[in-house]
């Protein structure tokens, strides 16, 4: 299933598309504030950027770009970032995940919540990206 695909057009198309797909995934994560998108959808598209090379390109390139441990690592980093950033307001006397209470200089409360949403979206994106890559790698290891 994984590894170099026998058809040249498929390999070339996958190789050319991959960076654009990954870029589009990052765009969707960052665009959640202003339109449809956010961590869940963006993380999945970003994962496609890692899965497409695994399906069509030589393993050296695919696993060189996104190694096998990247799935589990990114997943755990995403969840821990979500949890730890959620704990920050507690230190400043606010509620769990209430970013308005993290006082940074003269930054307005609405701006802090705006930044908090960005943190949440990026964390969710990392977790979803990692989960997809991890499930794919484990399943692909089962295909003979």
């Amino acid at each position: 299933m994984t590894g170099e695909y026998p058809s040249e057009p498929v390999r070339v198309t996958s190789g050319v598309l991959t960076p654009f797909v990954a870029m589009f995934g990052l765009y969707i994560i960052a665009h959640g504030h202003y339109g449809p998108g956010g961590g869940f959808a963006g993380g999945v598209v970003l994962a496609v950027g890692a899965l497409l090379p695994r399906l069509a390109l030589p393993e050296r390139i695919a696993y060189g770009a996104v190694p096998a441990f990247a799935g589990a690592l990114s997943m755990l980093v995403g969840v821990l970032a979500f949890l730890l950033f959620g704990l920050l307001p507690l230190l400043a006397g606010g509620a769990f995940l209430d970013y308005a209470h993290v006082g940074i200089g003269e930054v307005a409360a609405s701006r802090l919540r705006y930044l908090g949403i960005l943190v949440v979206e990026v964390a969710v994106g990392l977790a979803v990206f990692g989960a997809m890559v991890l499930i794919f790698d484990v399943l692909a290891g089962r295909v003979r």
């Binding site: 956010g38 969840v79 769990f96 919540r113 949403i117 969710v124």
Partner: peptide
């Protein structure tokens, strides 16, 4: 929240504990 997309403001701010739960389910 200075966020024009109400869906994102709901998911990631007002109801971010739900989103945390969903993320934990996926993980």
């Amino acid at each position: 929240t200075e966020t024009p997309n109400v869906v994102t403001a709901l998911l990631a701010d007002y109801r971010s504990q739900d989103t945390l739960g969903e993320t934990l389910v996926i993980v």
